Simulated scan of single mutants.
Amino acid sequence: MHEFMHWASSVYGKLYDAYVLYPKPPHDCQSSHVDTLVLRALPEVLERQCGYKLFIFGRDEFPGQAVANAIDENIKLCRRLIIILAPELLGFDLLKNMSEEQIAIYNALIQDGMKVILIEVEKIQSYASMPESIQYLRQKHGSVQWSGDFTAESPCAKARFWKKVRYHMPPKRFPPPSPASC
């Protein structure tokens, strides 16, 4: 599988348009707005309506891969890094202990050409308690604040929030499935 990914990357440039990094709440917490945004809204709008290809760890990796290798290889196959920030999950030591966060932030800070899209699920009053790397990325790239409805059945790509996110996404390589939706 590694050979295919290397071949696909060298032939087509990057395999994915964005790697989605998001805080995972502890298993005893109920599903959060972050899960709704990452696992339902982002794929619905960016993949289905707009034709982008996202890599979401936990959904897209191949079984049996070593976690650190899978993360590192897949981040290098992405054109953007989308980082989801949620104030209610900041107490879970966001971006301090997990290998996914460390590898993703390292690549965003070191790898040339990887732009970062910070999405705030709710307005973050102060970034002072955030890691310095996130503070730097916000200063360099800015952030987009979620303004959608978590209860909406099908989010629309034409909403202001999605237009802001799409502005930061890479140029499309392929037309979206239905041109009327984007």
Rank of each mutant, 00 (worst) to 15 (best):
K158R: 09
H33I: 09
V11Q: 09
L95E: 02
L137K: 06
P155Y: 08
H168R: 14
A86E: 14
P43S: 12
R138F: 01
N69I: 14
A108D: 15
S126L: 06
A18C: 07
H168G: 08
Y12K: 10
D149Y: 04
I124Y: 00
S126F: 02
F57N: 05
I134D: 00
F161S: 01
E101H: 09
C156A: 11
Y106A: 14
F4N: 08
Q65T: 13
C182I: 15
L109C: 14
A66W: 10
S99I: 15
W162P: 03
F150V: 06
S143C: 10
D72Q: 08
K140W: 10
V121I: 15
I83S: 05
S32L: 11
Y127H: 08
P63M: 10
I84C: 02
S181G: 04
G51V: 09
I71Y: 00
S178R: 13
L46C: 02
S10P: 03
E120D: 13
A70K: 05
R138I: 06
E132T: 13
H168Y: 09
S154N: 11
L39N: 01
E44R: 05
L89G: 04
A70M: 06
R138L: 04
S10W: 04
G13H: 05
G91T: 14
H33D: 15
S31R: 10
P87V: 12
I71D: 05
V144I: 11
K115S: 10
E73P: 01
L37R: 02
S31K: 13
D17F: 01
R138A: 07
L21E: 13
C50W: 03
I84F: 01
T36W: 08
